[in-house]
Design a protein around this nucleic acid. Structure first.
Lengths: 112, 112
DNA sequence: CGCCATGGTCAGATTTTCCTTACCACGTCA
DNA sequence: TGACGTGGTAAGGAAAATCTGACCATGGCG
């Protein structure tokens, strides 16, 4: 919908476009929380994530993880054990986002 | 809904709680874009904002501004002129958020 | 065989968000 | 008088996001 002009465009239409892409990728109720949860260790299992992120449902956990993986922010590794063990971890790209999310969290603690 | 434990709580339930508050305050499709638009000058009129933030509707502009004001992020000033002139500006509190949003934008440009 | 745990999927309902269209109040200018 | 510009509001509905509850495949264990 947005024309997405050059990133040199000073208007919010253009420079906001990168922001709109960010919001598309990590917006919504759960994705940022998932990224922060995953940032606290190397990897987490599906069930651990579900316990850690208070209130998330099965459906949202599965679909959010799938979208984060599609956007190259999360990696899924399945181990051939029984019962199946699946570990989720952040990609390097996502790890560069984490400090910014922490600033956001700090800002929220001080200002909201 | 979230119990919002102490901010020392290492789980996402607790430490994520500040993040959830941030998401409540500036989440959604338009608020971050509005803050960035407002960060580019001292103040902007209603009509200027509508032109600047590509695609926003009257309803969303008015309701987003109202909520941002209620959260202490935006200030509304009405001048006794004819026709009525209303200027919107960021509060100091919101201005401390802007650098973080810029980092988010830069991250999006490099990583999405 | 029947039950357990893990890591999900699916359909349908509900809730939240957002959009569309129309309209309003004010004073001013012609 | 009536049209105009500014800064909105209101009702209704569409669309998107999220939730609910049921269910499934796998193999191991008793």
């Amino acid at each position: 919908m947005s024309p997405c002009l050059s990133s040199a465009d000073p208007s919010v239409t253009g420079s906001g476009c990168a922001l709109r892409r960010v919001l598309d990728a990590v917006g919504g109720k759960w994705k940022i929380l998932l990224i922060v949860a995953l940032s606290q260790t190397d990897e987490l299992r599906y069930g651990e994530l579900r316990k850690l992120v208070y209130g998330i449902t099965n459906t949202m956990l599965a679909s959010s993880l799938k979208e984060l993986e599609a956007d190259g922010l999360v990696m899924r590794t399945q181990y051939a054990e029984m019962p199946v063990r699946v570990e989720y971890s952040l990609t390097d790209r996502a790890r560069t986002l984490v400090p910014i999310l922490m600033e956001l969290k700090d800002w929220g603690e001080k200002n909201l």
